[in-house]
Write a protein that binds this DNA or RNA. Structure first.
Lengths: 233, 233, 233, 233
DNA sequence: AATGAATGAGCTTTCATTCAT
DNA sequence: AATGAATGAAAGCTCATTCAT
C-alpha cells in the first residue's frame, strides 16, 4: 500500500468517447452548472406528462426526452418515478395555496368575501386543468403518494382558517346562519368547481355540453355563487 | 422441476387438470359450454381490477388469474384490453340508469321529488365507489373509451327528462323559480355526491375528515339537499 | 353488449412484422413445440454463466444470447433470474446425488467402501468445477437461494445414510474405532476434495501449485484416502 | 423541495456542512489533512462490504455512504473499485501472516508444534469469517485480482517454511513419517479449517448442523488435530 | 489536495398480444 | 368453439466512473 498519496490511474481505456463530440463551454450554457434550473425543467415536463397520462401511464423516458437532460438525471435528482411524481404534486398543490394566500378577504364584507373566494377558486380550477387532473389521479391511487409528502398537508390548511373567519363575521353581522362547518363549506364550493373540470369529458360526452364555452362558464359561475350564498343565508 | 409448463408465480391453479376430467362436452357443464357465464365472470373481475387500478394500471394477467378462465379467453370474447374495459364501462353505467328508472317521482310533489332524487343519487354514489372510480378514470382518459361506446350515451338521458318534468311542475306550482336548466341542476347534485366519493382520499387526507363515518354522511346528505332546494326556490 | 359470440377483431394494425421473416415449419424444428428441450437448453447455458460469473455477475442477457430462445422465454419458464438460478442449483445438486446413489458400497468391505467413496467424491469434484463453484457462490450468498428450494435438502441426505452403514459395519468388524459421526466424516472428506477445486486459484497462485497436473492429483487422492482411513482406524 | 442537491435515498448525511466550518487547514484536524485516516476508514468499510456481497455485488455507493468521505474520494485514493478491492485483499491477507509469524513453534516438540499450528489456524478462521469469505470470493474470480498484487504472494510463504522445519524435526526424532510435502500438509489443515467457515451455509442447511455451536466447534477442532497427527505418524 | 455534479451503458422485469392448432 | 404456448417491445432503475474546477 506504500505511501499515502492519491491513486495514480494506470489504465485509461474508455469506450464512450464517441458520443462526447462537442462539449466546448459555449455550447450549452444552460445545462451544466445550473442544477436548480434543470430540476425545474424536469418538473415542468413531468407535470404535463403525469397530468396527461397518470402516474402509471406517465413514462420516465418520455419526460426525459422532452427535457434538456437525460433520464439518468431524473433519478439523480428525484430518486424514482414516484419521487418525481410526489415533487410534481407538491408543486401543483403549492400553486393554489399561493393564490389563496393573496386574496386579502378580511377587508371585504362577508358575502362579498365568499363571492370573491368562489370566483377565485372557480377560475383557478378552470385555468389549471392539469392540477385538477393530478388531484383526480391521486384519488385513483387512494392518495398513497400524497400521504408520503409531509409538505402538502400543511399547505392547504389556510383556506379553512379563512373560511372560518368569514363565517364568523357573517354570523356576527347577522347575514349568515349559524352552524355551518367551514370544511363542509369548502367542500360544497370545491365539489362544483372541480367537477366542472374533472368530469367534463364524461359529463360533456353524455349530455353534450361544452364546458369550455364562455357562456356556459359564466352561467356555472353564477350557479355556484348563487347556490352557496343562498345556502349560507 | 417437474412438468414443462411455464412459470406460475403466485397460485397453483387448477386449469391443467380439467383436460383429463372433462373430455367430452357433456361431462362438466360448469365451465365449457357456458360462454355467457364465462363472460360475466370475466366482466365482474375486470370491473374490480379496473376500478382499483385504472385502465393503464389494470392488468390483463391479474384479471385472468382471478377468473375461472384463461387470459386467452379474454381476447377471444372481448378482443382487447380496451374492449373489455369498454364492456365494463357499459355495465356500470347501465346500473345507475336502472336505479333512476325505478324512482316514480311523478307521484310526488316537486320538492319531495327533488329530495328523493338527491338522496337516491347520494346513496347510490356512496354505495358504488367502483362506479365513481371508473367515471373518474374515464375522465382521466378524456372519455376516449366511452366515446367509442354508442350504448352509454343513450343510457343516461332519462335523468334529464325527469328533472325537466319536476322543474316544470315546480314552476307551475310557484315553488321553484324560473330558468333553471335541468342539466345544470343535475350537475349541481352530481358534483357534490360524486366529489364526496371520488375525492375522499385527497380531501380526507388534507383536512382529516373520514367521509365513511355515519354522522358525516348524514350531515352531507342534509347539506346537499338543503343547498339544492334553497337554490331552486 | 349484444349477443354472446366471440369478439370479432376490428383493428389489425401490427408493427412488428418485419422481423418475422422466415417462419416456415422446416426452419427451426427444435424450438417451438419442444418446451422441455428449450428449458434444458436454457438451464445448460445458465449453469455455465452462473458458475463463471456468480449470481450477481451472471447476466440474463448473456444467457439468452447463447440460447436458442429469447430473454423473454427465460422469464416465461423460470419467472425470474433467481428462479433460474435456483433451478440451476437443483440441477447440479441432483447430479452428485445421482452418482452417489449408484455406488453399491454394501458389497464391499468397510475400508474398501470408504476408499471407493472418497475416490468417487474426489473425482467428481475434480471433474465438475462448475458444481463446486456454484456451491461456493451459494455460500457467499449465505445459502439464501438454496434455502428456498425444498428439493435440494432431501437430495443429499442419502450420503449420510451410506456413511453411517459403512461405519457401523466397520465397528462391528473391529476395523474402525467407535464414535465417529457420519456427518463429521462426510465433512472431513468433502472439505479436502472441495478445497482442491474451490480454492485452487488463490492457493495455487500463492504456493505456485498447479492442481490440474496429473501427478498432483494422484498425490492428493492418496493423501485424503490415507488421512481418512488412518483417522477411522 | 428545499435545496438543489441530488436525491439522497436513506440518510441525510453531514457532508455539506463542513465546508463552512473548517475553512482554514488548522481549523478541524478531524477529517481534512488526515488522508491516512480517511484511507483506513474507507478500507474498513470496504472490507465489510466486499466480504458481505462479493466483488461484483459490493457497491461503491454503499461503501461511500458508510464512510466519513464521499464516493469521489474512493476514486481519488484507490483509482477504481478494483483498486479498492485489491487493497482490501492485501489488508486481510497480511492479517493472517501477522498471526503466523508470532507463533514461535521452534521451542515446541514436533507434535505439539503441529497441534498449536492447527489450533491457531482453526481459531483464526473461525473468528475471521470475512477473511475466509474474501478468499472464497477471490477464488470465484479465479484470483484475477490477487494476481495483480505483488504484495500478497510474498506474504504467505512463511507458513511453508515453518511447516517444513517442523516436519524435518519430526522426521529426525522419528515421530513423523518421511515424505510429507509441507504444502500438502498446509492444504490438509487449511481445507478443513476453511471449509467449516466457507461452506457452513450450504452444508449447514443441507445437514442441519450449526457450526457456531461451541460443542460442534470443540469436536471439529479435535477431529482435524487427530486426523492430521495420525496422518503424520 | 480535494470534490460536487453529472452520466453512458446496461440491467432485470413486465405487458398486452398473437401464433398455431 | 376454444386454447396452450410463445413473444417483441419497452419500462423503471442501477452502476462504476468521469467532468470540471
Amino acid at each position: 500500500m506504500a505511501a499515502t498519496g492519491p491513486h495514480v490511474a494506470k489504465k485509461q481505456i474508455r469506450k464512450r468517447e464517441h458520443k462526447r463530440i462537442s462539449k466546448s463551454k459555449s455550447d450549452s450554457p444552460g445545462r451544466r452548472n445550473n442544477p436548480e434550473r434543470t430540476k425545474q425543467d424536469i418538473l415542468t415536463v413531468a407535470t404535463k406528462e403525469f397530468a396527461r397520462n397518470g402516474f402509471t401511464g406517465g413514462r420516465v423516458d418520455t419526460i426525459a426526452a422532452k427535457t434538456r437532460t437525460t433520464k439518468r438525471m431524473i433519478y439523480y435528482y428525484f430518486g424514482s418515478k414516484e419521487g418525481l411524481y410526489i415533487a410534481v404534486l407538491e408543486k401543483v398543490y403549492s400553486g393554489i395555496r399561493a393564490i389563496e394566500s393573496q386574496l386579502y378577504l378580511e377587508e371585504l364584507g362577508p358575502e362579498e368575501a365568499i363571492r370573491q373566494l368562489i370566483q377565485t377558486t372557480f377560475d383557478y380550477d378552470e385555468e389549471h386543468p392539469d392540477f385538477i387532473r393530478l388531484v383526480s389521479i391521486e384519488n385513483i391511487h387512494r392518495a398513497e403518494h400524497l400521504k408520503k409528502s409531509g409538505v402538502i398537508r400543511e399547505l392547504n390548511q389556510a383556506i379553512i382558517g379563512m373560511l372560518s373567519a368569514i363565517l364568523q363575521r357573517g354570523r356576527a353581522q347577522g347575514v349568515f346562519r349559524a352552524e355551518i362547518d367551514p370544511v363542509d363549506l369548502h367542500m360544497l364550493i370545491s365539489a362544483f368547481c372541480l367537477f366542472r373540470v374533472s368530469n367534463r369529458y364524461t359529463f360533456g360526452t353524455i349530455f353534450r355540453r361544452n364546458f369550455s364555452a364562455p357562456h356556459v362558464r359564466q352561467q356555472h359561475r353564477r350557479i355556484i355563487t348563487d347556490a352557496v350564498l343562498r345556502f349560507l343565508r
